[in-house]
């Protein structure tokens, strides 16, 4: 009879049984709904590449790459190991701070050298300092040996104060990756990217991947900040706009640069592109903006499966001391 490992115990399945059915029969506490591959509530993990294709249909690429599958759609005999997905179960990797640069008075770019981290531009990682402070950041850029993060400096902020002062060469820990804001390939869909503050980081990551892939539809970026000074990376973005690679709109609540538009990036995005049917949408930044934008873009015609959002997690939620 087929068997598989589940979080330390051996589950003996019956012939022809699904992973979900075997887990339920063994009274394992596992979430599930339709048992038909539709509701996606029974999402579990296995080793990457092990899940049968039928059990990953309609799942996001970034989930499939990390071994996610639907327990109700996988035959128990096709799987050797299963676990419940949990952010805290992400592996930890050593990292070294190699570069730091001010992008604006309130944003720094840091580069980290990491070992063993398989992550894509636009995904998030959790950064852990030597004194146990933990914060989530999105990956703005990625090379074979390192990754680049944009860090907003918050006066008195436990992590940003550390990153501002930490000597180059110091050690940190990186956990992850997680998050869904990754480039999904050249599928011919126009891309709308809306972000506020350092929510630009994953969007910048997606834009770079899209440009390298020669994305065949338009790429429109709306970046917002409280003030014009907060709109960092302006030169890089204007440069891409001049080359005709992206459409870039900068927005601020308090404008003191004539190039910037007054108000929210969401408002300007929707007034320029009121019909989003067939678009792929990326949203990142302040949770209030991201939630409002998810709903507004969906009502404007974007499909739920084509809206990729990573709201900033409430900092109090991820603060840990250990």
């Amino acid at each position: 009879m087929p068997t598989f490992q589940f979080e330390g115990s051996t589950i003996v399945a019956e012939d022809g049984e699904t992973v979900l059915s075997a887990l339920v029969r063994h009274e394992v506490s596992v979430d599930y709904g339709c048992k038909a591959g539709a509701c996606q509530r029974c999402l579990v993990c296995t080793n990457a590449g092990e899940a049968p294709k039928a059990s990953t249909q309609n799942l996001d690429d970034s989930l499939i790459e990390r071994g996610y599958f639907l327990a109700c759609q996988a035959a128990a005999q096709s799987i050797s190991e299963v676990w419940t997905p949990s952010d805290s179960a992400y592996p930890s990797h050593p990292a070294t701070l190699t570069e730091r640069e001010w992008l604006s008075p309130t944003v720094i770019r840091i580069r980290l050298e990491t070992v063993g981290l398989a992550a894509r531009r636009g995904q998030c990682i959790r950064l852990r300092s030597s004194c146990g402070v933990v914060r989530s950041y999105s990956i703005a850029d990625r090379s074979t040996e390192g990754l680049e993060l944009h860090v907003r400096l918050i006066p008195g902020g436990a992590m940003s104060e550390v990153l501002k002062a930490l000597a180059l060469g110091s050690a940190l820990q990186v956990e992850g990756p997680f998050g869904k804001c990754t480039y999904k390939g050249n599928d011919g869909k126009p891309l709308l990217l809306i972000g506020s503050g350092t929510g630009l980081a994953p969007l910048w990551g997606v834009i770079q991947d899209a440009i390298s892939a020669g994305h065949s539809a338009r790429i429109a970026l709306f970046h917002g900040a409280a003030t014009s000074e907060g709109l960092y990376f302006r030169k890089e973005l204007e440069n891409l706009q001049q080359q005709g690679l992206i459409h870039y709109v900068s927005c601020a609540d308090h404008v003191n640069d004539e190039l910037d538009r007054l108000g929210s990036p969401l408002k300007h995005a929707l007034s320029e592109f009121p019909d989003l049917e067939g678009w792929r949408v990326y949203l990142c930044g302040h949770p209030q903006l991201v939630r409002a934008a998810q709903k507004a873009c969906f009502l404007a015609g974007a499909s739920l499966g084509d809206i990729h959002a990573d709201p900033f997690v409430d900092q109090s939620f991820v603060t840990e001391t250990s």
């Binding site: 599930y32 709904g33 339709c34 048992k35 038909a36 539709a38 509701c39 996606q40 509530r41 939630r291 998810q294 709903k295 969906f298 739920l304 499966g305 809206i307 959002a309």
Partner: peptide
């Protein structure tokens, strides 16, 4: 108002599967 749209989509799928006469354990 204020619901998590990703989670809501999952719930809507489960509801529709049930209402369409599909397998469910509601």
């Amino acid at each position: 108002d204020g619901v998590d749209m990703d989670r809501q989509a999952t719930k809507q799928k489960a509801f529709l599967t049930m209402a369409f006469g599909g397998p469910n354990n509601y």
